[in-house]
Design a protein around this nucleic acid. Structure first.
Lengths: 398, 398
DNA sequence: GCAATTAGTTGGGGCTATCAACAAACTAGC
DNA sequence: GCTAGTTTGTTGATAGCCCCAACTAATTGC
């Protein structure tokens, strides 16, 4: 296929996928292409089974022939988002419009299970998704797996500290467990996918440069630059939790000293607030620490408030360094940090004010993330979806 | 002009500009375009005065018709790179191939001169460049001004601490001083331009993600991501010198505490090595501290070596944070740090080893920059040149 | 019911890349 | 020295794709 045609097909398809049903006329206006060109492109996309005539009425003007909207064909391709976390597995399926068609969630202590067994279980869940009625006899186009660890550019999980996994070729194992599926499998870091999710449907919508800070058991970050996920040269960008805050501070599991994660991570925060960190394990629900500390803060417990202030200042120092280096529009507080952001915000902004250089009124904003514990899976499907939309435009050739 | 033609013209033009003279046949091979398409494109570019037939012989095969190389027309467009630094002004002119056609350098205490006067002087230098024989009756296509301070996206110099300038609209003033020149003027931070220069013709050649650390009176950085300069949302990315190293350290001029620049900047390094920081002013030459400390280190002075080690460790902590966040392929030590890199490298790499997470063998490299004090002007012309090449491809319309 | 208005389709035209054939220019070997 | 072989560059024909203008379709307002 000629690259120009492919480009224009992608332009139209993405527009409909991201902005919803619309008429050929509005598409022509929005893309700058000619009416007749758009008609031809839309016809191709309908033939390819990607779009269909939509019943949705669009009425921009009071007189004239009513427009005929087109929308994504709900029987068109779909994609998968998978997640391996410390104590659960999740699988979501969406169509190209991002409409969720299936979701499953299974709690499992993945630390106590061998990587191949965890992946076999995840493969079963993915296969079950394909047996649902919505799937019909179709295959998904792509699957993305969210994992809580460092993923190299080849898709191998180099290390996942909280899972106790080292050097697990997740993509390969999953491909084997699925017996060579007719769709590609990619693996991506959980925080990176959280950032993608917030970019697509969360607090990062409309932003082009931001950092999503993921407070799980560790502290990670996903970096979005110029509207795209930034992975770094070897895929390890966003290790925000291991920024040095105090060079001679307490040793961290990573081998360094005074890492942000060690000084302001979940365990430290709970300890400062007066809870025994071991209680975390009993909670089972990953949202536990955030919700509980928020309750405690709302109740006005001085020790909790004090702990949040201290952790906020520490986080603020790290965020200020990040802001000096990258000058983002915003920093999103995700994971257990999101429900605590109303208390963290003041100390963080204080540190930003004193430590970060920036233009007047251009200061980096501090916002709570919106997608909670679902951020990683949502990001996984979203990334699959983005890639599938690129690919689908090249497809009408076949 | 049809965007496809424009794109292909740009493809061919950039190829010749960056890779040197080559035949139509090799261009066809390299771009993937058809032989006849390339011939047509080249003909257009020759008509536009951008390319010309080259005497350079290319002999890839032993038999067959000898290829006819084309090269950039030396009488074609040229661009300017200007620099305002603390104690000098510089102007370079290059053709689109990057060949330097003119350079001028004037020492001037710009702290003691009012911004409009400094810019008037710079404008005079730029006008003189255009009176040189190489310019003929042509105008340059673009000029880029390197300044030692924060430049916002509108091209206004928000603050230049070492110059004592605040809120100077450099681009506007220069345009006025030049009485509406027929070429565009852009303004860019000195460290950013240093990074561009190292990317194009220095230690960053072939790299796609790196950070250039510019040790001048302050410490700045230019961030190159995916082969392009990254400016951040408001243009202030790369303020590496104000990363917090020690949250309760000594106060810094920026309002923060324990900034990298305060703990490992030029003044601190000189003081630790036993020199009075005020001596700096007498040196006049900007290369002074690097060259002198290198001499002292080579002579084996214990105090100098000790100071370099300490500063190296401090820098290493900052670089490790940077590496955790961005995962670059390399960090380039520029400015006065370049000649000292053989002593700084060991402590920096030590800190990277303990504090930066990264894959085995994928560790961020630490390299000396290659372009010394010329990095900023070289980057200024290089950036002008890049932009001019984009623009020139759209030009044959006229 | 008719003018006005907006949406979508159809056929013609022009631009551009591609292809195939050919001309040009050189080497190698007899 | 001449011819076969090889590589480069050009030329004319071809096909694809976008654009334009004219036309049809469908609705509102008077």
């Amino acid at each position: 296929m000629k690259p120009v045609r492919e480009h224009n097909l992608g332009l139209v398809l993405r527009r409909v996928a991201e902005q919803g049903p619309r008429s050929r006329a509005t598409l022509a206006l929005e893309t700058g292409l000619n009416k007749s060109t758009v008609s031809s492109l839309v016809a191709d996309l309908i033939d390819a089974g990607l779009l269909r005539d939509s019943p949705v009425e669009e009425r921009p003007a009071r007189v004239g022939r009513p427009p005929q909207s087109v929308e994504l064909d709900p029987d068109g391709p779909f994609v998968l988002g998978l997640e391996i976390n410390v104590d659960y597995l999740a699988v979501w399926a969406t169509d190209l419009a991002g409409e969720v068609r299936h979701r499953s969630f299974v709690t499992n202590d993945n630390r106590a299970t061998s990587p191949p067994d965890v992946i076999a279980l995840l493969a079963r869940m993915a296969e079950e998704a394909l047996e649902q009625p919505f799937a019909g006899s179709r295959h998904p186009m792509l699957a993305t797996v969210a994992v809580p660890g460092l993923v190299d550019r080849a898709g191998e999980l180099a290390v996942a500290p909280n899972l106790g996994w080292v050097g697990v070729p997740v993509a390969r194992l999953l491909n084997e467990a699925l017996e060579d599926p007719p769709y590609a499998v990619r693996v991506e870091n959980e925080a990176n996918l959280g950032a993608v999710a917030e970019l697509v449907e969360g607090a990062g919508r409309g932003l082009s440069d931001f950092v999503y800070i993921s407070g799980e058991i560790g502290i990670g970050a996903g970096v979005v630059l110029r509207g795209e996920l930034f992975r770094g040269a070897s895929g390890f960008a966003g290790e925000f939790g291991h920024l040095t805050i105090d060079p001679f501070g307490p040793p961290c599991g990573c081998g360094g000293r005074g890492c942000l994660e060690r000084l302001a991570g979940q365990d430290t925060l709970l300890r400062l607030a007066g809870w025994d960190a071991r209680m975390r394990c009993e909670g089972a629900r990953p949202e536990w620490p955030g919700a509980m500390l928020a309750d405690s803060a709302r109740a006005g417990h001085a020790r909790t408030l004090e702990a949040l202030s201290q952790v906020g200042h520490t986080l603020g120092i790290g965020i200020a360094s990040l802001a000096n280096l990258l000058d983002p529009e915003a920093v999103l507080l995700g994971g257990y940090l999101a429900p605590l952001s109303q208390w963290l915000r003041v100390p963080i902004e204080g540190e930003l004010e004193t430590r970060a250089l920036a233009g007047r009124g251009m200061r980096c904003r501090v916002l709570p993330a919106r997608l909670g514990g679902e951020a990683a899976v949502r990001g996984a499907v979203a990334l699959s979806r983005q890639a599938a939309l690129e690919e689908a435009a090249a497809l009408p050739t076949a």
